[in-house]
Nucleic acid binder design. Structure first.
Lengths: 210, 210
DNA sequence: ATAATTCTGTACCGATCGGTACTGATGCTG
DNA sequence: CAGCATCAGTACCGATCGGTACAGAATTAT
């Protein structure tokens, strides 16, 4: 028996997408439940019935964000060398924080870096998510050391911290209105810096044959 | 006639300092006027009489913050070369965002990167302040090009953007609980990166004479 | 049909938001 | 001392906050 009673009049995924945009633009505390329900095109009781409450809704939104908007990061990790991982990460991040179908910046930061006491768990949750991403990057660098495209004395955690710091700075800049081209420039500078500071093996200059 | 009527029972500078801490820790929207007045040790009507309102209070707090907590940045600008300016800036920033007599991070970011519609001016004001600092750094780099400690083809604006991005990343990291030592590591990596990407003239290795 | 179930929509809850009217207390000036 | 100016403190304002009670509508199961 697949369903009993009146079926809901909206698609949960679709309205989550609307909520994502509102949280992203206004932050967790800056987005009121009324705002959210209005943007989602549903009534508040439907919101509470379907998603549980403001914080639960936000966590579902963040999960969706991680699945979709952060896919580029997981893709970057599959690049063959540390240098290329970082290059992809920084360049794709410059694009991700300046998409014209999304608010500027990234949800993880716009969502809220500081919150009132009662919402402190939200800020902590976001911070923990970012640090988890950083740990994943550090793990990727550990493999890079094993692969030999990072020197044996490289510090994976420190390098990951540096790269993530730059992506966070890009996000802050984007939210301040800095252009995609300017962020791309930051990515290139940081990439040269990463190569120099890490001693990463650079991709071979495939000077066009023939 | 220096003063008429009842003198106020608090020191404006002193209570501003308390307000600074509250805004810093909870963000603009996360700090309620009740919280602020309580932390300042005054009543709400006194707050409004002395400072005008929540937003005006915040702007006065930010001005105080710029005067005191950002003094290290102005000091960094007086270093003789671009490399040393950046070295001081990044290292001092690692300290500034992890002071144990201050909330973690920096007010400019913790204050609010995203706000509800009605408080959007606050986020814009903070973003503009950060970009003004970046412009000042770019100007310092222009002078560095003239001084010859940055190459003639260096891009001052792009380099300044990179450096500020790292400091913002440091602030975000600090707010997430990352340690001072780890941020110092980020500073050193970014500094090596800056030197490599900019072609900055390095300070002479003053190998101890005698 | 009728009961059971689940959603929608209105209308509301107490609490808190930023902000203020007003009464008294406290000072300086004549 | 009288009179005035300013501050402190209580008590309150309308609006909005996150969250919900309840009644009616829509669907499946019997």
């Amino acid at each position: 028996m697949p369903q009993r009673g009146r079926p809901r009049g909206f698609d949960a995924d679709e309205v989550l997408e609307r909520a994502l945009e509102v949280f992203w633009r206004y932050g967790y505390e800056g987005a009121s439940v009324n705002d959210l329900a209005a943007a989602m095109g549903i009534n508040k009781p439907s919101l509470y019935a379907a998603f549980g409450g403001k914080e639960e809704l936000f966590r579902k939104v963040v999960a969706r964000y991680a699945d979709e908007d952060m896919e580029y990061a997981r893709r970057a990790f599959t690049e063959p060398t540390a240098y290329e991982v970082v290059a992809t990460l920084l360049r794709e991040n410059a694009l991700a924080v300046t998409r014209d179908d999304r608010p500027a910046g990234c949800l993880s930061i716009q969502g809220g870096t500081a919150c009132s006491t009662e919402n402190a768990p939200v800020a902590e949750f976001l911070a923990a998510s970012r640090l988890a991403g950083e740990r994943a990057l550090a793990d990727r660098f550990v493999r890079a050391v094993a692969d030999g495209d990072l020197p044996a004395d490289a510090d994976p955690a420190a390098l990951a911290r540096f790269v993530m710091s730059v992506t966070e700075g890009q996000a802050i800049h984007a939210a301040a209105g800095v252009s995609r081209e300017d962020l791309r420039q930051t990515a290139e500078i940081a990439l040269v810096g990463f190569a120099a500071a890490s001693g990463a093996r650079l991709p071979e200059h495939t000077t066009n044959p023939a």
